[in-house]
Design a protein around this nucleic acid. Structure first.
Lengths: 330, 330
DNA sequence: CATCGCTACTGTATCGTTACAGATTTCAAG
DNA sequence: CTTGAAATCTGTAACGATACAGTAGCGATG
C-alpha cells in the first residue's frame, strides 16, 4: 500500500479507502488506485488486516476422528474449498481427539480469535457447541440439525426421507421383516432415520426386526458378527436398511458368514457417499448422499452467517438420490 | 503480554524475551513470567507474530482435485493434523483446479507469504513446483519422489516393491500372463511401478500383456470398458496388478462384464487405501498403503525442513503391507 | 464577505509482537 | 576510586492495515 501511495502521489489512508470503495473518495482517484494496485499485483497483507480489524478471513472445519473412518472428509473439504476459492477465506482444518472434549477446539477458536466462522458436524439434539458458539456470537454452520430452539445455519441430508423410501423399496420387493442399521443414538439424525423407518413400516405394511446391538459407529467386525448372529437366528430379517456405506459392507459380510445370499434371502438399501458399493455389489440398492454438495452448502451458510444474513435463510436439506441400478453391468 | 507485564511489574520486552527463554533474562524472572502466563492462559497473538516476524505458523496442503476421487484426502489430512497438534502450526488446505495451473497455488503462497511450509503431491520426474519452491527457499515436502537431482524431503510408497511382490504372488498362484493397470505416465511413480512389474516378470518368469489404453486416472467406466474388451480378446491375461483401489473396482466389473470369474479365470493383486475391497472381494489380494502414516511423515518432514534439518534426513519410503486374507469371512 | 456545508483527501494512533539500541546495577580488576 | 565487563532489564520503532479526527478547497447562502 505504501508503494501504491507513492506511485499515485496519494496518502496511504486514501489508498486504503479507495481500495474499499469508500464514499468519500473521488471516482477518478479510485480508478487510478485500482489500476496501479492491479498493475503491481497488490494483495492485502492478511496479518496486517487481522491485527488491526480482528478479521481473520479463516473458516475453520472442526473434525472428529470418527469422520475419517467414513471417508467423508475428502469430498467435504473439496466442496468447501470450491466455494471459498471465490472469496478471501482460507480453510483451516482443526481436528480433535474424538469424544474426549468436543468443546476444546471451539474454545480454542473463541479464545484466540482463530477464525471468522466454524463448520461443525455430528450434531446432537442438545449440542453444547451450538450453545457456546451462539452465546459468544461466533458465526457457524452445522452439518446436521439440533433440537434446542436455536435457529442456526445448517445443511442436512434428509435421513427421514431416506429411511422411508428405503422401506418403500424393500416392501415393493416383497420384503416384510426389516432391520435398520442406525446411527448412534446420541446424534440427532438417529431419530430422523428411526422416524422415517417406522413411518415407512406403518405406511407400507411391514414389521421391524430389532437390531440395537450395534450402530454405524461400531467397527466393521462388530457389525458383521452381530449381524451374522441375527441372520442365523429364527428372527432373521429379509430386508435391510443401512445408515452408512461402510456399515453396509459389514452387513453384507454378516449375511454371507451366515451362508445367506443377498438378493435372495434378503434385500438391502444403503445410504452411500460414493458409488463403490454399487460397482461391487450391484444387488444393493443405494441412495447417494452428496457430501461435496454438503461442503458447498455449509461454506455458503457460514459465509452468509458472517455477513449477517438471517440464519433461517441459511438452512438446507438435501434429498436422497436413488441410484439407478448399474444396467450396463448386468 | 501487556497484562503479564503489568502483573509482574516488568517491561513488555522483558516478558517477550522471558517467554522465549532468552539468555539475558534472569532465571527467577523467567519463572515468574511463565507462571503468570500460564495462570492467565496467555496465547501469543498469531497476527502480531506474523506481522512482526513473517512467521505464519501455517502449513499448506496443496491438493489437486484428482486426489479427491481416490479418497486419499481424508486420511492424509488426519495424519498431518495428528503431528501438527503438538506444534503451533495450523493446517490450511489450498486446492487447485486440476492440471490447469499447478504453479498457481504455489505462486500465491510465495507471493503472499501465506505459509511457512508446503506439502505437495502427484509428483512428476521433473516437477516445476519443486524447482520454484527450491529457488524461492520455501520449505516443503513431497508425497512422491522426483528425478531432477534436487535433494528434498519426501515420503513415498515403494511402488516398485509393490508391483514386484504383486507379480510374485500371481506367479505363485500359477499365473503367467499379467497386466498392469498403471499410474498416468507423467507421474514419477509410473516408472517405479512399471520397473517393479517388469523386474518381477523376469525374476519369476511371466510375460506381460499390454494394457496401455487406460490408467488409474481414467474414469471407472473407461477402465471397465477397456478391460472388458481385453478380457474378451484372445489376448486375455490371467493375472492382474492394479495400481489403485478404485481402478481395481473397475477392473473387476470389466472381468465380470466379459463373463469371466475372478479367482478362476484370473487373479488380482491391488494396492488399496482402505480395506473395503478386502471385505467385499476377499478373492482380491491387497497390499495396503497407509495414507495416514504418509500424512504424518510428510508433516514431520516439512517441519524438519522449516527447522533447517538437512533434506536427506527427511526422506522416507513405506513398504507395502500384504494384507492377510480375511479368514474369518470364509 | 463571513459562514456553512460539502467533497476529497490526510496524519496519527493503534492492533500484538519482536529487533535493536540503550540503561542500570553489580562486582572484580587495576 | 575509576574503569570495564557482565548481567538484567527496558523504551522505541516497526511490521501492514484501518479508525478516527481532522484539514483544505470551493461554491452557495444570507
Amino acid at each position: 500500500m505504501k508503494t501504491i501511495a507513492f506511485m499515485t502521489g496519494l496518502g496511504i489512508t486514501t489508498v486504503s479507502r479507495a481500495l474499499k470503495d469508500a464514499p468519500d473518495i473521488g471516482a477518478e482517484t479510485k480508478e487510478r488506485v485500482r489500476l496501479v494496485a492491479k498493475q503491481i499485483g497488490y494483495q492485502p497483507n492478511r496479518a496486517g488486516v487481522r491485527l488491526r480489524t480482528g478479521k481473520t478471513n479463516v473458516i475453520s472445519l472442526v473434525l472428529t476422528l470418527e469422520e475419517e473412518i467414513m471417508g467423508i472428509t475428502s469430498p467435504m473439504v473439496i466442496g468447501i474449498t470450491e466455494i471459498l476459492a471465490g472469496t478471501p477465506y482460507h480453510l483451516v482444518v482443526t481436528p480433535y481427539s474424538s469424544s474426549k472434549d468436543p468443546l476444546g477446539p471451539i474454545r480454542y477458536i473463541l479464545d484466540t480469535g482463530a477464525a471468522d466462522g466454524v463448520i461443525i458436524s455430528r450434531m446432537e439434539p442438545h449440542d453444547p457447541r451450538v450453545t457456546l458458539l451462539t452465546e459468544r456470537q461466533l458465526p457457524f454452520a452445522t452439518h446436521g440439525r439440533t433440537e434446542m430452539g436455536i435457529v442456526h445455519p445448517y445443511h442436512d441430508f434428509d435421513n427421514e426421507r431416506f429411511a422411508y423410501e428405503a422401506v418403500r423399496r424393500l416392501v415393493e420387493r416383497g420384503r416384510r421383516r426389516l432391520v435398520l442399521l442406525e446411527p448412534p443414538p446420541h446424534l440427532t439424525f438417529h431419530s430422523h432415520m428411526r422416524t422415517g423407518f417406522e413411518r415407512g413400516l406403518k405406511d407400507f405394511g411391514a414389521e421391524s426386526v430389532s437390531f440395537h446391538q450395534v450402530n454405524i459407529d461400531y467397527s466393521l467386525v462388530a457389525i458383521r458378527d452381530a449381524f451374522e448372529k441375527l441372520m442365523d437366528s429364527a428372527d432373521a430379517p429379509d430386508g435391510i436398511v443401512s445408515g452408512s456405506g461402510s456399515g453396509a459392507i459389514a452387513l453384507i459380510a454378516g449375511i454371507e458368514a451366515a451362508r445367506k445370499k443377498l438378493g435372495e434371502d434378503a434385500d438391502m438399501v444403503s445410504k452411500v457417499p460414493s458409488d463403490f458399493l454399487r460397482w461391487l455389489r450391484p444387488e444393493v440398492m443405494t441412495m447417494y448422499e452428496d457430501i461435496r454438495v454438503a461442503g458447498r452448502e455449509l461454506a455458503r451458510a457460514v459465509i452468509g452467517h458472517i455477513e449477517g444474513r438471517p440464519p433461517e435463510t441459511l438452512q438446507s436439506l438435501s434429498q436422497p438420490e436413488f441410484q439407478p441400478p448399474m444396467a450396463s453391468l448386468r
